[in-house]
Design a protein around this nucleic acid. Sequence first.
DNA 1: GCCTATATACTCGTAGACGTGTATTTGGCT
DNA 2: AGCCAAATACACGTCTACGAGTATATAGGC
Lengths: 222, 222
Amino acid sequence: MNPMKVTMTAPARKRSNPLALAVLVLLLERAMHPYEMAATLRARRKEESIKLRYGSLYTVIELLERSGMIRAKRTSRQGKRPERTTYELTPAGGVELRDWMRELLSTPAKEFPRFEAALSLLPSLPPDEVVGLLETRVEFLKQDIQQIEAGLQAAKAQKLAPLFAIESEFRLANLQTELTFVTDLQLRIQKDGCGFLKEWNQRHQDRTPKSKSKSKSKRKSS
Amino acid sequence: MNPMKVTMTAPARKRSNPLALAVLVLLLERAMHPYEMAATLRARRKEESIKLRYGSLYTVIELLERSGMIRAKRTSRQGKRPERTTYELTPAGGVELRDWMRELLSTPAKEFPRFEAALSLLPSLPPDEVVGLLETRVEFLKQDIQQIEAGLQAAKAQKLAPLFAIESEFRLANLQTELTFVTDLQLRIQKDGCGFLKEWNQRHQDRTPKSKSKSKSKRKSS
DNA sequence: GCCTATATACTCGTAGACGTGTATTTGGCT
DNA sequence: AGCCAAATACACGTCTACGAGTATATAGGC
């Protein structure tokens, strides 16, 4: 019993990396080789909404090929540069693309933003330090908001249809919400520590230890 | 030249999984063994804001120990159940905890929500289908909002300080923003397809292929 | 005509996140 | 008294994301 399983149908894909979805959409348009996909995503500013890493790109393409969503159409080479493989969408890939889009649009999925995690652990820092840190955050948020607004203006000036800036509008809305929330939170903490000020301060009566980091306030992404 | 490197100081940690931060905060309170941490996080409803997977928990703890942030305090066993290791925070761990919290609170990090990715690829589905999918999303969002509101009410009834519900308030604000955005987007698409309706429809004149999934509309998390 | 910076195009290795399995114990119910 | 479900506790293996490296081509400046 339980003989060697021969998997004829490619196993059901696990939809994880959204970069794979982007690949499918690009190939819907025309056949491309990996580097070209990356370049196109760059040019269209999709990298702002979809995390693009070269390592991931090639992994993702390999997985898509293995599960029959895309296939190599031809390979070519120029001089002694590495060989380029051009891929195209399979019918199964087209179906997968549509299903995946449907899922993403119709069904909100719980994601775990880091800031929410930090908020849930707030009492581990003293209240007045929290207020200061949030002040820094407010500044960053304002910067981000301005940049996106500038980008939207530029797009409008180029008469680009608003459809191609929807992602930015969404991001902008979220940032504005966060800004409001954070400034409000500052006030609430200063006022009564969200109904917990006394106990909160007591937990941190004694020492206020120094940071070990050299406090370079550069920002990372992802 | 280049002799064998002997790394005496534990290598700089890469702050990735927020679960590690939760572990540090728990150990700040008192020494615990892994399963107890999980149970405590559950009881305090932190799993709603911090993704908790048993596999990750044990990996994360191992990493924290290897980099000197926590250390085993004692081991014990009850009957023949697997051995329990109780961990405690080291001084380095306390510093790390504070630095990490500071970073998370002060600096917004770019994360890539899936819905934003989908929005950036919108034209790959026909406009009227998009409107329908968004309608489904609206229903889900309303459900989520109601649940969180109910939870907040319950917390208030128990006279729990609002501080311990801040994460929920943040999530609620975000969901409300998304709801507004989505309903507005529906209208804009129906009106003029965000200034692109003609071309958008043309791309999808012919076929409207069926889904391959059995359209079970269950929701997954993460 | 040479040198360098940038673009082209991947390849490889590793670390870490997570699903799943496993084995014991407790508690409730009949 | 016995049995099933749930809780207790962790171990293991896989999958995959990503950093960093590699190697060639091209274009522009001086």
